[in-house]
Amino acid sequence: MQVSITVNGKRYERNIDPRMLLVHFLREELGLTGTNIGCDTSQCGACTVHLNGKGVKSCTCLAVQVDGMDITTIEGLAQNGALHPMQEAFWELHGLQCGYCTPGMIMASTAYLATNPSPSEEEIRGSLEGNFCRCTGYQNIVAAIKSAAEKMQQEPVGV
């Protein structure tokens, strides 16, 4: 099936198997392997990307369903070589250990901040209930998101 999907600002025309999941489209068709697969059953959230600006688990939708839409992956978050404040915060505040959940965490949290730019800690925790981390105990992840939110309030960025 023919699809036209914009990923990280670039339009891709592909002829794909209609059964192909979005996450496989990103990883295998486009070679964007920053989006990880952790569970196959939509629990872990490692595959979270932005679909028209909203956080979506890319293992839960077919690539054909997003025909004509805009996708942002972890590879598209940095702008002109400058890391997104959320990426910086995860790095600086040790919001990761093995890092496998990190792209999903960063995409989920940036999407959430777009709807709630100044969340409480409780709200941040609630927004991440669909994203597993097995290494950090989540403490530094929550701290990183809080710090990024504060920074972004001072210096708004895109996405």
Binding site: L32, Q87, L96
Partner: peptide, 13 residues
Amino acid sequence: AAGKVTGQRAYPG
């Protein structure tokens, strides 16, 4: 962490 927050670091898969 640089590669892990940008999606550049390669895992086995």
